[in-house]
């Protein structure tokens, strides 16, 4: 990641009738970073991607992407960006190879290298064997890989991924995550729209959280966790016969509202690692047999729920 700004929005706004899809959005994305764009369905993520690629015009505000205006330099900009749309958007009556070679022409891949480039990306996404089958016969995971190959075919500087792992099996999801890591290592900027918080936590350098088109948080996952969720939590695993004694000891020391159960463990909210020695001493004195005490950092999921006031559970 460098300090070069590749995406800059100033009060970017888009209305559809009375609905504010994107509400005065101001942010910067730096070259080479994996930038997470989080929000519920309908939060304005896809509309923002459309605005940043010059496919949709803003109602107010402005954006600059790769020092170009999406509004006035749309074709030149789109030559340098790649977009994986939420649905694969592939021509199912065509073969995988045809899908790629047609888009190679559309994106201006040098004519002499089209067939090599297509073969390279088919190979990279493990689609070579089925390259000459019609896409309608592909599995969902294969279609998603082909769509990703198409988005990367012209080797864009910024890649926008709109829910790239939605509905995929774990194996394909892992392949997609590997690709995102690889793109980042190659110095490309990845703009990742997702409502998968675990994915965002593991992949993103920084995240922006959007609610009803409005930016409500921006920073690294760790920064946001520190700002938004106060105190760590501890996870304790104790012998089953000691569980009642452990719960009553913890409740008397920290209050009943701080204790919860999670699978086989007990969770103590709002406690940091400094109290662990005293905690263990107290529990041992109460005759509790302790197997494990683990401090847990607040996750992006905790941040997200804190931001949304636990009003809704994200899908």
């Amino acid at each position: 990641m460098t300090n070069r700004t590749v995406i800059l929005t100033r009060e970017l706004t888009r209305r559809f009738g009375d609905t504010l899809a994107v509400d005065h959005l101001s942010l910067q994305v730096y070259s080479g970073e994996v930038f997470g764009f989080l929000g519920h369905n309908g939060a304005g993520k896809t509309t923002t991607v459309r605005l940043l690629n010059g496919v949709l015009e803003p109602t107010e505000g402005a954006a600059e992407v790769l020092d170009l205006s999406p509004q006035s330099d749309g074709p030149a900009l789109r030559r340098r960006t790649g977009v994986l749309t939420e649905t694969p958007s592939l021509d199912e009556r065509l073969t995988g190879r045809d899908n790629l070679s047609i888009y190679a022409d559309l994106y201006g891949v040098p004519e002499e290298s089209v067939s090599k480039r297509v073969a390279k990306y088919l190979d990279l996404f493990e689609l070579t064997e089925r390259a000459d089958d019609k896409v309608g016969e592909y599995s969902r995971g294969m279609k998603q890989r082909l769509a990703l190959a198409r988005a990367l075919l012209h080797e864009p500087e910024i890649i926008f991924l709109d829910e790239p792992t939605s509905g995929l099996d774990p194996v394909t999801t892992r392949q997609v995550h590997r690709m995102i890591h690889q793109m980042s290592e190659e110095g490309r900027t990845v703009f990742l729209c997702t409502h998968n918080l675990i994915e965002a936590q593991s992949l993103c350098d920084r995240v922006a959280v959007l609610e009803k088109g409005r930016l409500i948080a921006l920073g690294t996952p760790a920064d946001l966790a520190r700002k938004m969720v106060h105190g760590q939590r501890l996870r304790l695993e104790v012998a089953p016969e000691s569980r009642d004694a452990a719960v009553s000891t913890l409740q008397s020391g920290f209050g009943a509202d701080k204790i919860s159960q999670e699978n086989d463990g007990l969770i103590l909210q709002g406690a940091d690692r400094e109290i662990i020695p005293d905690l263990i001493a107290g529990l041992v004195a109460a005759g509790v047999r302790i197997y494990e005490v683990t401090p847990q950092e607040p996750s992006l999921e905790d941040v997200y729920f804190a931001l949304h006031g636990r009003r809704e559970v994200p899908a």
Binding site: P75, V83, S89, D91
Partner: peptide, 14 residues
Amino acid sequence: ERKTLEALLYTPTS
């Protein structure tokens, strides 16, 4: 109908 238009609109064509 086939939802293929969106990808086409993201290409560098005018």
